[in-house]
Design a protein around this nucleic acid. Structure first.
Lengths: 268, 268
DNA sequence: CCAACATATCCCACTATATGAGATGTCATT
DNA sequence: AATGACATCTCATATAGTGGGATATGTTGG
């Protein structure tokens, strides 16, 4: 349910699919061959062959040639991952705007996109207040419990809100999520929709508040979101409201560069 | 030529290998199906099937559902790549030391490992001098023309030096590399070996100088390198020599945390 | 507005490819 | 030295992947 589903693969890709499963097994912390084999449900021979191919290609790495063989994610994944990040259209366009927002606010700035029921962090400008957030680029969090995610939800039908709200409550990454009761949560989201700006009052991480706004592409679809986050000390409710226009402006500037035209909506 | 070789793959992985080839084709900038098919040498049908599977798995992304289909690297690669980076043993251990070195020197600090004839950047602490280097995490450069690379070469037999030197001269990433003539280059490297510290005088990038030292693991093998880099203005030859001890000390501190014992050498 | 094209997507019979059971090799532990 | 746990290799079998071609979809030019 976490996203590891794998049922509906186009036929004729078993080997590729299994190979990717090996990568994900290793990513999930399964180091040894036997362990990986058990995870992906293949014989040791098969798993060994796949893993070897992946090592050969640099997607996995098998340190300590002698002794107990263990696998870790390989260097080519680093290459591809960073390249992928910098190639995603939003990221390149957004970067300078995020930098600017970070410089103005001195707080941590995030960029994220929706991935199913989660938000994936794509960029992070570290704040200058000497406190580090747990967020990392490449990490996923439940949509409904982060400011970034809420900004991504605003355009969705309310039925989906409920799904995502429930998903956040039972999400492994946030076992002790403190979301408001559903009616209150929905009310908050509706109000955010009017302001085009979502707030997060320590719902995802205690002590951390944030202000977020959605980014749209040429078709008007919400494709990403920006947020400014900081410790509660630096984030009084008044400051959050003061910050809102700047965050929205940043989001709109990025949207405009992506071809979005303000005041126009897509009717597809 | 660039490293796209693919001859010696363990049999029984054609599909996986081809799938990875699709990823690399996209990474190389081939967006359209036909283009990718031509690059990896498969029929359109086959390529389409592989690409679809990769999209499904999140390794590729196919924006603009209508119109000319194009592929870009997908979000799961971002996840895996950043995870891979943070999982590689050296990186986690080195990070605090790199931060410290960056804070002391105010210059750009790099961490890299060897990948064949190239060095792969794994971490970068941006300098505080307001100038940005072209280096990026996940990027590769020829070993012989970077300070980082030279530090990785010190332990290798001199025969290999020549290979790497030649490789750097004909490397696509550095078309106008200004390496010293071979005897001078070798002499420089020999001297670096004695000092356990490599210098780079604008050989890789004009206007950029750097000081680098090697990191060893428990077996005494060189597995990575650190470097401090800056514009020539901030990097007089005297400053480079003054910096050397700090860089070497950082490298040794990291090595020690990896189990390396100073003064001992491996005889394997 | 329709014709002509380019490009993606789907289908299916054929066989090359991937499969897993085991046999062998390698290293730690007693 | 003997055991066991695990990685690695081998090989006959059939299943999974292949590419030719037919269809669908969107794009260009007249």
């Amino acid at each position: 349910m976490t996203g590891t589903d794998s049922v509906a693969f186009p036929a004729g890709t078993q080997t590729l699919t299994r190979g990717l499963a090996v990568i994900e097994a290793v990513a999930a912390g399964h180091r040894t061959l036997t362990d990986i084999a058990a995870t992906i449900g293949c014989s040791r021979s098969t798993t060994h062959r796949l893993a070897s191919a992946l090592v050969q290609a640099g997607y996995l790495r098998a340190p300590s040639s002698g002794g107990g063989q263990t696998f870790i994610l390989g260097p080519r994944l680093v290459e591809m991952g960073f390249l992928a990040r910098d190639t995603l259209p939003v990221v390149a366009v957004a970067r300078p705007h995020l930098d600017a927002l970070g410089a103005t606010t001195r707080d941590t700035v995030h960029l994220g996109i929706r991935e199913g029921i989660e938000v994936l962090y794509l960029d992070k400008i570290a704040g200058q207040r000497g406190l580090e957030m747990r967020s990392r680029v490449g990490k996923r969090m439940p949509i409904a419990s982060t400011g970034l995610g809420k900004a991504l939800m605003l355009d969705l039908p309310e039925a989906e809100w409920r799904t995502l709200y429930d998903a956040a409550l039972s999400h492994p990454a946030t076992p002790n999520a403190r979301l408001p009761a559903w009616p209150d949560y929905r009310a908050g989201l509706r109000q955010s929709g009017l302001a085009a700006c979502a707030f997060d009052f320590e719902e995802n991480e205690p002590g951390i508040r944030c202000v977020a706004a959605a980014i749209r592409d040429a078709t008007g679809t919400v494709i990403a979101a920006v947020s400014v986050a900081s410790a509660t000390v630096y984030m009084s409710e008044t400051r959050m409201h003061e910050l809102a226009p700047a965050v929205v402006a940043t989001a709109q500037a990025i949207s405009r560069e992506l071809g979005w035209l303000p005041r126009r909506r897509a009717f597809a």
